[in-house]
Design a binder for these strands. Sequence first.
DNA 1: GCCGTTTTCGGCCCGACTGTTTTCAGTCG
Length: 552
Amino acid sequence: MENEQIVDALELLVKLWDVHGINEFKSKNLSFAARGLDKFPGRIANLTEEELYAIPGVGKVVIQIVRDIAQTGTCPDLEAMIEQSPPGILDLLKVKGMGPKKVGLVWKELGITELDDLLAACESGQLELVKGFGKSVTENIRTYILFLQENRKKMRINKAEKLSEELVHLLAPNFSKIAVSGELARDCEVISSLVFVAQTDDIFGSQFLIEAIEGFQTDHQQSSPFTWRGHITGHLIPIEIHFTDVLQFDMMVYQWSAHPEHLGQVNFFKLKNIKSAEEVYSSQSLPYIVPAMREGLQEFAWSEKHAPNDLIELADLKGCVHNHSTYSDGKNSLLEMAEACRAMGLAYFGIADHSQYAAYAGGLKEEDVQRQHIEIDALNAQWTDFKILKGIEADILPDGSLDYNPRILASFDYVVASVHAQLVMDQERAMDRLMKAIENPYTSILGHPTGRLLLTRAGYPLDTMKILDACKANGVSIELNASPYRLDLDWRYLYAAMDKGVYVSINPDAHKIEGLKDMEYGVRVGRKGGLLKSLTLNALPLADILKFFSKS
DNA sequence: GCCGTTTTCGGCCCGACTGTTTTCAGTCG
């Protein structure tokens, strides 16, 4: 068992203990121990008893639990809890405002263990009669369940990509060629259906081939001889597979990969004898549009000023500047993160751990900042070809000020200013707060500007155009947070950012080494919005990005 | 269940919000 699986199992046990109301402190301790284990750099399964004891919160009982899980994937306590819990309970815990206590309560009082039943209880007024649930709580829960239901057939790009690869693998033996098409081919941040084009000599027989593959559930009403529609066992996301012969293949891929609006803009269905995507454009003297941009939005207006070669590519990035380490809530040390970055061929690594206000994430106190700066100076003395930059992800406090006094803020090379707490704000309040932060002379980058979590939480409402103007006026870069959970700023606003000349920073917000790879999602989604390499902050060489940070 | 000491029993990461139980439990980040 890998660390992540062990920690996941421990956290599941904690949740179930909490729902069942089993000794609160016993569960809190296991949760504390799980956090310690999660941060442990080595392989948990290989640890000796002595080494396990050294981790805070780990005692005799926890050691046995960890040992069992490492060997078998489960333990007697977890088995017992799963046996006693209806499967829907874990879905209830995903609802914002429903913690273990409230989940336990609706289960006990109303016998509710499924999301649909909870929604029904909201709507019938039954829920607001339960102790602890008033009108307001009920309304919030109802809204959130509707939000979840709307999204439950969708997937974030990273997960969709993984599933798509598995499906291609299953389909491949039956067809001479398979292409990924649809939203995934356009690098959309959220995928609402998986679309493939399959090349075959036997179009009419293809349907049956797919029906025979294990797990493929056919939707007979929606399918036709030319298109299979359905889903795969275990996932709700709709899947469609279009069958075509060798002659039509490339154009079918083009058609099913571009947004219908874009197809309209290029008169796609009026074109005759077109054989390639390039020809679609060249035959009409239109500028070539890269696949990711074929959305029917501002791609042609963008193309009046720019060319595909102006778009950012992964290889253009010279460094990355929003990352975490074990100083706050990261899983790898400063040195490990920096070395990983260096191994990726980057020239600089910016550390931006959480600031003190984010105590839940181990935010840095003043003495931690000093300690980190001493370590950075020592490490930087070793390298000539690589540099660690002293950054911080300073919380934007509810009043819009940053989380340290000017003396400490001045000790950093740059400051990423982000909102982490008190996320529920109306637009006026959100704007006041963010504008004040952007105008702060120490702010270098506005981090995850809307605070959204894709498919989980909408961001706070903003007047994004005003935010971009303020960034430009104050020498602040706006973040394209590259974590597939965020991808915030939304790429649809990048066109405006480019027009206004605002630097965009593709930041992985990496909490561990693997997280650094998320920059790839940032690049792909950035290209959708026309992100130029000339306005990508971390495509600047070291000297230039330092100049940007100095605002001179 | 674990830990640490003013050490074998009391307290448990932090700060803030929110609604409601009207004085604080539950939840969140």
